[in-house]
Design a binder for these strands. Sequence first.
DNA 1: ATAAAGGGATAACGTTGTGTTAACCTTAAA
DNA 2: TTTAAGGTTAACACAACGTTATCCCTTTAT
Lengths: 229, 229
Amino acid sequence: MDTKGKKILIADDEPDILEIIQYNLQAEGYTVYTAKDGDEALQRAKQVNPDLIILDIMMPRKTGTEVCSILRTQPAFKDTLIIFLTALNDESSQVRGFDTGADDYVNKPISPKLLLSRVNALFRRVGKKEEGGSNGILTVGNVVIDPVKFIVEVDDNEVSLAKKEFELLYLLASRPGRVFLRNEILNQVWGNDVIVGDRTIDVHIRKIRQKLGLDCITTVKGVGYKFDL
Amino acid sequence: MDTKGKKILIADDEPDILEIIQYNLQAEGYTVYTAKDGDEALQRAKQVNPDLIILDIMMPRKTGTEVCSILRTQPAFKDTLIIFLTALNDESSQVRGFDTGADDYVNKPISPKLLLSRVNALFRRVGKKEEGGSNGILTVGNVVIDPVKFIVEVDDNEVSLAKKEFELLYLLASRPGRVFLRNEILNQVWGNDVIVGDRTIDVHIRKIRQKLGLDCITTVKGVGYKFDL
DNA sequence: ATAAAGGGATAACGTTGTGTTAACCTTAAA
DNA sequence: TTTAAGGTTAACACAACGTTATCCCTTTAT
């Protein structure tokens, strides 16, 4: 299962629980965000637009049930997965939880392993749609380059590149570590017939280095450039 | 919620439990089939092709876990909902249940009401998925696009778009984040043979942006446009 | 038939930011 | 030290896109 990029928001007022769950979900490959009360949960949900929200019920400043109700009225969160994680294990609370629109209701205390099983089961059921397979997404270290969406991400921060910059970066990153001669770069990015000045490539390389904020492009003097971390 | 026509198969070796669950599910509008051991469960599953199977684990002539494993290997039952309903409430059994491909794991004893909540929650989740695939309603963030009703909603406010505007928006929103080249847009919305001026697309994009009152369409200079929040 | 209304395309002009170059500076190897 | 290769910066030209007004055409109501 591909858990990459799946975002999970956890809301609980007990820091210990937050930490334990966060650790285990991250270990599985999920990206985890946290909130310590109801209002913060709502706010962060709008910020990060998570794929799954795990809600404690008894929280300060809006209960989990209230948060769930509010989210479900908004189109943006109509389909977001929601799990209640709570010590309230009486029947009526559970039924109310599901009535509010939750996808699962888990009683505390619960082992991280078991929670993971349930989270994975939910994603397994829902997540059949995306990931068309061999799209041209390049992932090198903490750098993700998606030619379909035309975005570059460094440490989950989106970086905006111009067309030529993007094409140049994509070429270099398509074979990490391999050195591309200046002529190769010219042919691939600019085309065989186009003639540009000597400094043109350098300027683009500089802009990429600057925008990415990383030293991921190495100069091989007298030869060319290579993408490497 | 539309429960009509949804078929549920229950497998348990205790007649009392079968009867109670059957009664409650039928009262909710589901069509219920029963089996009293593992082999019969497999046989009836192939007969009626249920939407959901509720499996006891400790049954004669194949355990629920075995039944689930066997079903999951068959393409016809790859996406069938499966709930384990069992007295085995230790952690490893639950994890094993989910690993086998179950969608939920419920401990006995359970109130019929609560089981109903879980069953409904599962159908609610899956039903949306099919809805999204079949009748073409797109939901991206707080934007809902219904090509049947020809309606676009932003934050529950209805927005009226013209035909070309709607087609253009629908195309972009059908793959959120993906960049559509100007040529792709022309081919998809206007047709391969139609020739229109350079500024035509821009004008329509502008109108959409204006009417939606959102910056949901991003320009990628030299490449195209993408729908993104 | 005629008027009104609105969709759709286009031209003309304004705006932005990319791509490129030139000029000058820095570094590393012989 | 010398020198070739690349780094840096600012400035410019132009292509690409945004914006607006206008025209033509189809639809709809009177």
